[in-house]
Amino acid sequence: MQIDLTGKTAIVTGSTGGIGFAIAKGLAESGATVVVNGRKQYAVNDALDRLRQQVPNADARGVAADLGGADGCEAMLTAEPEADILVNNVGIFGPQDFFDTPDDEWQRFFDVNVMSGVRLSRAYAGGMVERGWGRILFLSSESALNIPEDMIHYGVTKTAYLSLSRGLAKRLAGTGVTVNAILPGPTLSEGVQEMLAEQQKESGKSMEDTARDFVMAQRPSSIIQRAASVEEVANMVVYAASPQASATSGAALRVDGGVVDSIA
């Protein structure tokens, strides 16, 4: 199967590193025109340089905008009025006990992890419907189903993305626009590597082995018994964004390594 996204414009939010960058790269390799996004212009510029080095024929541009607020989403829409593929990837995470998480932190997580996707999907879906083709993807998490006790506020936002993607898929039924959620499990992104850096230093093991130990300690139900790579998650996103995935909508597509103990 060869995925060809030539002629399609894809916006990937939060794509200067990690899973987002891997998604942008995968879409560019499939021929899409890719819009890279980050909060800071220097980070966007650096990501574009790396993308063009890794995909020499990439058609890519960038928008620096903080999508955790309405103004940032409006800046994105002004810079890029139309999109054929919208990947709502931007998100924040971090452990914090429920009783130590104040209202403003709950609001910050909701604004970045949920409202960015609400605002951008609302803005771009109309054009997709008019053209009779579109893909809207929400990066949720296995934490949407396995709510982590040390990140309840994060888990709640990822569960919200499941509701949002399913509801929007129903709302856009029959239009040629599909809407799906992607559920990564533990993934060896830059953020996870930073989180495990001290543990790796103490153990003297490689980062991959340190991540494997973390997965088996914190997510022992993992079937692959390791952290996924960012490329493995990106592969699912690229497929879901492709014409080949035209019969998949309203789905929660798991790339969790089997962490969620369910056959459904």
Results as ranks from 00 to 15, higher is better:
residue 80 E to Q: 14
residue 162 L to D: 10
residue 235 N to A: 14
residue 230 V to A: 12
residue 4 D to A: 02
residue 190 E to S: 14
residue 10 A to C: 11
residue 115 M to A: 06
residue 246 S to E: 15
residue 72 G to K: 03
residue 247 A to I: 15
residue 67 L to K: 02
residue 192 V to C: 01
residue 257 G to P: 01
residue 84 D to H: 12
residue 172 L to G: 08
residue 134 G to W: 07
residue 67 L to E: 06
residue 214 F to T: 00
residue 73 C to L: 05
residue 249 S to R: 03
residue 93 F to H: 13
residue 82 E to V: 14
residue 115 M to C: 04
residue 145 L to F: 03
residue 5 L to E: 09
residue 61 R to G: 14
residue 140 S to Q: 02
residue 245 A to C: 10
residue 81 P to V: 15
residue 196 L to G: 14
residue 138 F to R: 07
residue 241 A to C: 15
residue 104 D to S: 09
residue 77 L to S: 02
residue 158 K to D: 14
residue 132 G to D: 09
residue 105 E to F: 02
residue 3 I to N: 03
residue 251 A to H: 11
residue 61 R to V: 08
residue 200 Q to Y: 10
residue 173 A to W: 08
residue 135 R to E: 10
residue 209 D to S: 09
residue 145 L to E: 12
residue 83 A to Q: 11
residue 148 P to K: 03
residue 110 F to R: 04
residue 241 A to W: 13
residue 123 A to C: 05
residue 10 A to H: 10
residue 248 T to E: 09
residue 31 G to F: 04
residue 47 A to H: 04
residue 215 V to K: 04
residue 112 V to I: 15
residue 93 F to L: 09
residue 209 D to W: 11
residue 188 L to I: 07
residue 11 I to A: 09
residue 12 V to A: 09
residue 257 G to E: 04
residue 131 R to I: 13
residue 113 N to S: 01
residue 103 D to K: 14
residue 11 I to R: 05
residue 157 T to L: 01
residue 113 N to I: 03
residue 65 A to W: 05
residue 162 L to F: 13
residue 149 E to A: 06
residue 184 P to H: 11
residue 97 D to A: 13
residue 179 V to E: 13
residue 219 R to N: 01
residue 232 E to M: 06
residue 69 G to S: 09
residue 118 V to I: 15
